[in-house]
Design a protein around this nucleic acid. Structure first.
Lengths: 95, 95
DNA sequence: TTAAATTAGCCAAATATTGACAAGTCACAA
DNA sequence: TTGTGACTTGTCAATATTTGGCTAATTTAA
């Protein structure tokens, strides 16, 4: 939902081609295209690399990347909000 | 983390045995035991059944069940909080 | 100590994810 | 139009993960 768009924006603002970033990530261009369109998910390690290559804030990218995955899990659930609040409380304490 | 404990409490307060609930869910007792201890995750459908069998609030159980899964995804992430906030915002709009 | 209840460990079957390839579309320059 | 480069689509096999169920151990309670 958001991660791919973010990557695409950053990539275009740096005038890089998919195949260039794909090469850096050691995947093929179709795979990179899919990541940008959210059809496939990037690996955590790839997010770190992309942050570096695109000179973007790594925490920001990681947060968006994570959010995509969480969203995928809860998007069809009526009780998503309650569940998310519970997790936030748990995560707070855990720090 | 929470779902299994919740089920166990409800089960014990109704003085039911694992094997009885397991039979109702059409799984074996060891599997039910694992669900209670969080070693395996229940299917959504099983949560609905459990809510009925244990006379518990189905939304409440679903929320806890979902929360477990989300937690599993974000628990080791430094940026979990930011990600969760993003998802909450997205989910709010989606309604 | 026994018998029932619960847990641990293991394995095979089913499912999902992954990476790669070939072929397709699209925009545009020659 | 034809050709070229950038990107997308679809498919497939390889790999990983999840699932269900079995056996055997351990715990609990009488």
């Amino acid at each position: 939902m958001q991660f791919g768009e973010r990557i695409k924006e950053l990539r275009e603002s740096k005038e890089l081609l998919q195949r260039q970033l794909a090469a850096s990530l050691e995947i093929d261009t179709p795979m990179f295209s899919k990541i940008e369109r959210g059809e496939r998910r990037a690996k955590r390690e790839q997010v770190l690399l992309l942050a570096e290559l695109l000179e973007a804030d790594v925490h920001d990218l990681l947060a968006v990347w994570l959010a995509d995955q969480v969203y995928e899990l809860v998007k069809d659930e009526e009780d998503a909000n309650e569940a998310l609040q519970m997790v936030i409380n748990t995560v707070k304490k855990q720090q």
